[in-house]
Design a protein around this nucleic acid. Structure first.
Length: 562
RNA sequence: UGCCCGGUCGUCUAAGGGUAGGACAGCAGGUUUUGGUCCUGUAUGUGGGGGUUCGAAUCCUCCCCGGGCAACCA
């Protein structure tokens, strides 16, 4: 059976599922408790969606739960705003957490853990500067050297650490280190820093603390406190696992286990909160929810559905090798879902006037058209048809090749849900630019009751000029021109921002929509026929609706003519 | 030239001693009142050398390549 199919249909297991099933079989666990541990210092992106889908999916599959735990141990970069947006994104993706927790909930307990380590002679206060500590750390190929403060007595350490908590010392003047092994081949075991002084208010604990635990001091212990069975993180945390286990062992905690999988990378975009933040701060994009951003909020604004994103996360798989997923897979998932749920509408982007010469002036007929051919329950709508219409400029060609199934002198096409028309004439201005196309319609070719016997190969979308509703449309392309912006920047010694695609946003301030669009709800997913999938933007006003192009339709014709 | 991971179609991902399969992308057709959807067909892959075995992507070994590790970030 295939993998890369939606999880409900998938039977092959990823390596974490195999581990879990073994644990369950051998009775190591009766149930599964995972956690999703974002740091509230930025917005969630599609890479987080992979982790969320994995963690929540595992719990769901094996009958357990998932805690949402904010890893908020660094007050300097973390805010309530980020917390709120992260919660919103997880919910929007369709997941429900068992408990909402914060590493900061455990600050008191973590402090006690530190005291415990000190008393066992497994932690000490170091007065060295960060430069000195770095120098003593050695290098991956050379062992480190002991700090002169390494031999302080437990009593002295405890006294000093208490005074650190009480705010007696300045930032950077002292830190607490675990006492492990300065010559370990694992750099993280060379007496890692576990508590540092930061005279900074915390978004939850306020001014209560001026010392904060580091990631290593907090993460595994939080897992253990919550009795997380499987703590799943990305590959770069692999060297931390030894430390993770060390704390659990020395503090005799619940034996949570850490497993690592490869993080998601995607072509033509970046997946680093730090760099995404730079795009936001430098005003290169419109904000964290700019529709070009790989953030959950950006994708949402762009018109991606939660279903499409979850489907994507199920298809990309979970493994340990580095990977770069093709953007086209995400786009496929979007089309797959949007095709089923989007309302079809006709919108002309680059209009040219079409005159139906044998249709009486001032007369209109309301024609019926299906809202979604994939879903009968979506119903029908009326579209006014008259003598003067807009069609797409690119749908007419004076001197067209044989396979061009659109308009040209003497050619016939179907106007979608209306009549077959035949082109008799066209008008150009003094610059040679097409201004009018003259056609006659065939009264017996009406959609649904066509007895004309005329075969029209092509079908065009159209909008009645007197009824045309002006909208703004924003079309997006990949954010970067380089497939791997960060790597390329490194290679060419430039900034990753040098590879921003200057044409990643193209706005049509005047596109012409059929009247139904004016009355459609603002959270509706659309397909503008023969164009693509579109979603209303938050910039819409009562005067002007704005739409974002989520993704184009597949276009075999465009491809063939490349 | 330390330690730790990893290497299967273009991109992902299965197969865990017994026919290398699926998805996306590609290509070629068919259907179609969206050049959409749908349907059919098709090409492309086990990094390399030795070894074990009746049989190796899978086990052993050497090599090659990629990634990670020297934040008081997570």
């Amino acid at each position: 059976m295939a993998d890369n199919t939606p999880s409900e249909e998938r039977t092959s297991k990823n390596f974490i599922e195999e581990i879990i099933e073994k644990d369950l079989q051998e009775g190591r666990h009766k149930t599964v408790l995972t956690r999703f541990p974002p740091e509230p210092n930025g917005y969630l992106h599609i890479g987080h969606a992979k982790s969320i889908t994995l963690n929540f999916g595992l719990a769901e599959k094996y009958g357990g739960g998932t805690n949402l735990r904010f890893d908020d141990t660094n007050p300097v970069t973390e805010t309530v705003e980020f917390v709120e947006n992260i919660k919103h994104d997880v919910k929007w993706l369709g997941f429900e957490w068992a408990r909402e927790l914060y590493a900061s909930d455990y600050f008191e307990q973590l402090f006690e853990f530190a005291i415990l380590l000190i008393r066992q002679g497994l932690a000490y206060v170091d007065d060295s500067t960060s430069e000195e500590i770095a120098a003593m750390k050695g290098t991956p190929t050379q062992p480190g050297t002991d700090s002169p403060y390494r031999s302080r007595t437990p009593d002295e350490n405890e006294n000093l650490f208490q005074r650190m908590r009480e705010g007696e010392f300045s930032e950077g003047s002292r830190i607490l280190r675990a006492k492990i092994d300065m010559s370990s081949p694992n750099m993280l075991m060379r007496d890692p820093v576990i508590y540092r002084i930061k005279h900074a208010p915390h978004h939850r604990t306020g001014d209560k603390w001026c010392i904060y635990p580091t990631y290593d001091m907090a993460h595994g212990q939080s897992d253990a406190i919550e009795k997380i069975t499987h703590s799943i993180c990305t590959l770069e945390f692999m060297p931390h696992r030894e430390l993770y286990d060390w704390f659990i062992d020395k503090l005799e905690l619940y034996p949570s286990r850490q497993y690592e999988f490869a993080r998601l990378n995607m072509s033509y975009t970046i997946m680093s909160k730090r760099r995404l933040l730079k795009l936001v701060e430098d005003g290169i994009v419109d904000g964290w929810d700019d529709p070009r951003m790989p953030t959950i909020s950006g994708l949402r604004r762009r018109g991606y559905t939660p279903e499409a994103i979850r489907d994507f996360c199920g298809r990309i798989g979970v493994a340990k090798r580095d990977n770069t997923i093709d953007m086209s897979l995400l786009e496929f998932c979007a089309r797959e879902h949007l095709n089923k749920i989007s309302l079809r509408r006709m919108v002309v982007f680059d209009p040219v006037k079409l005159i139906i010469t044998n249709w009486p002036e001032g007369q209109f007929e309301a024609l019926e058209s299906e809202n979604n051919p994939e879903d009968e329950s979506a119903g029908n709508r009326k579209i006014p048809f008259g003598r003067e219409m807009y069609i797409e400029r690119e749908d007419f060609m004076e001197d067209a090749p044989k396979k061009f199934f659109r308009l040209g002198p003497g050619r016939s096409v179907r106007l979608k849900s209306a009549f077959i028309i035949t082109c008799d004439d066209y008008v150009k201005d003094e610059n040679g630019r097409l201004t009018e196309v003259h056609c006659r319609y065939h009264p017996d070719s009406k959609s649904g009751s066509d007895t004309s016997g005329i075969k029209a190969k092509g079908t065009l979308h159209w909008v009645s000029i007197p009824h045309a509703h002006k909208i703004e449309v924003r079309e997006y392309d990949r954010l970067f021109v380089a497939e791997h912006p960060v790597e390329q920047a490194k290679k060419e010694e430039r900034e990753f921002t040098d590879y921003i695609n200057p044409e990643s946003l193209k706005a049509f301030s005047e596109a012409w929509a059929e009247p139904a669009v004016a009355a459609d709800p603002s959270d509706q997913y659309f397909q503008f026929m023969r164009k693509g999938y579109y979603y209303p933007d938050k910039d819409s006003t009562p005067e002007k609706q704005v739409f974002n192009r989520t993704v184009t339709l597949r276009d075999a014709w465009a491809k063939k003519n490349k």
